[in-house]
Design a protein around this nucleic acid. Sequence first.
DNA 1: AGTTCATTGTGTTATTGTAACACAATCAAA
DNA 2: TTTGATTGTGTTACAATAACACAATGAACT
Lengths: 256, 256
Amino acid sequence: MVSFKTVNDFRLHGGKYFMPCISIDCVIFGFHDGQLKVLLLKIANLGGWSLPGGFIYKDEHINDSAHRILIERTGLHDLFLQQFYVFGDPKRCENNITKVVFENTGINAPDNWLLQRFLTIGYYALVDFKTVNARHDLFSEDSDWHDIDNLPILAMDHKNIMQQALLTLRTHLRYEPVGYNLLPKKFTMPELQKLYETILGRKLDRRNFQRKMLSYGILKRLNQRRQGVAHKAPYLYSFDLRKYSTALEEGFQSAW
Amino acid sequence: MVSFKTVNDFRLHGGKYFMPCISIDCVIFGFHDGQLKVLLLKIANLGGWSLPGGFIYKDEHINDSAHRILIERTGLHDLFLQQFYVFGDPKRCENNITKVVFENTGINAPDNWLLQRFLTIGYYALVDFKTVNARHDLFSEDSDWHDIDNLPILAMDHKNIMQQALLTLRTHLRYEPVGYNLLPKKFTMPELQKLYETILGRKLDRRNFQRKMLSYGILKRLNQRRQGVAHKAPYLYSFDLRKYSTALEEGFQSAW
DNA sequence: AGTTCATTGTGTTATTGTAACACAATCAAA
DNA sequence: TTTGATTGTGTTACAATAACACAATGAACT
């Protein structure tokens, strides 16, 4: 892996190390306080926010690039990560950040690799909010979680990318297990239900939810209850990782 | 659109017009004689077959590129076409066709755009077998349909791309309507069932299939029956395109 | 012209899954 | 000790799915 001392170093010489015209953008979902959140970076010197993203080393598998970017941003190795769409509108880069910066700072480098048209491969990730160690990078002056229904203005087409990711997650939720990467190792049934309700954007019946979740056979009820909570102490559950993985591969429904 | 007189013209100068390092490969599914088929191109002078593919003009939306490639190959404008995955293994191009051809013909151009590492965006398409006018191009000496379970040897990672496309189609079939683009305008219920059975790779109950299909409300039964067939003449159906489109957007199942 | 037979159209029943709802147990706070 | 929101565990009505039966059709055969 190559490291760059300054942003300009990267802007001027990064093209030697990275594939041209293709980037990766990650929509990193976390869950906290009953809210679905996305990790965003505040763009240095420009204001505005962007999705964490990066580029592909010339000999690197694209899925490894996405993992690397995720690890740099969250410190987490164990997370759910999946391609969901390639954004390939030729106009999507008309207001790209490098262009604006070069104009503002008087740099004239029309052939610079970052001024070309870029496609971006959208990945979405599910991470455990509490164990994330959010870090920003050379190009950003801050990183923070934002509620998905209260987003700041995002650069370029990142709002669109984010919305597509959310749609993908919602669809995904209907056919495959979700939760392992978004929740702590141990969690209660109401917490899992709240996660589902948040992603779907509507209330579910408590008793039917429990029955259905248990019927999938991917949960283990532990001989522990959540301590120190008001009201009746709920049982703790954890995912049966082997069965969870199988369900991820095969899906839930079998309509035909 | 640019056209090239010869293959070498394209190989040597195409880089001026196309985005670098990114290609598109299309898995074109058709249905005939109770068999699911894929349209393949026979690679000129090399033997072996490949998926129809192409490149992205520098100012072209990637989805338009895919459409253009499809039209060039099938003559069809009305088809189902969808991105399904980006193949980004850095080793996938080690045996790429241009490399082999350059070695065989003694061309030495190590910086040639086609010798770089390429990502490829996989699209899959569903087309009406009968109305397709299969055409090959400069780089292929033939094009033909092949049964999906009896494929010839495919170049590079095209076998893998094809298998991923099939998996995607199978999954798709479980949650969204499929058929409009694979069947003629008018078709019988047994023909539709055969299509489903072929994609899924197993038999379905005739009566339950019909009940379920009709329950989706995307079919119109016509006041016509298939003529000149042995045994009882089956009714003809067509898709209600408006309801079909709605179902495509919203999906069938609503597990939660 | 009548018979044969694979195929189609339509229906029934048993089983399973989902939606809607009820009540007792629990535990911190009053 | 009482209160009240919350959890654990049902039950019942309804809808969807799976498995199966029989009459109608029409080309092919005698």
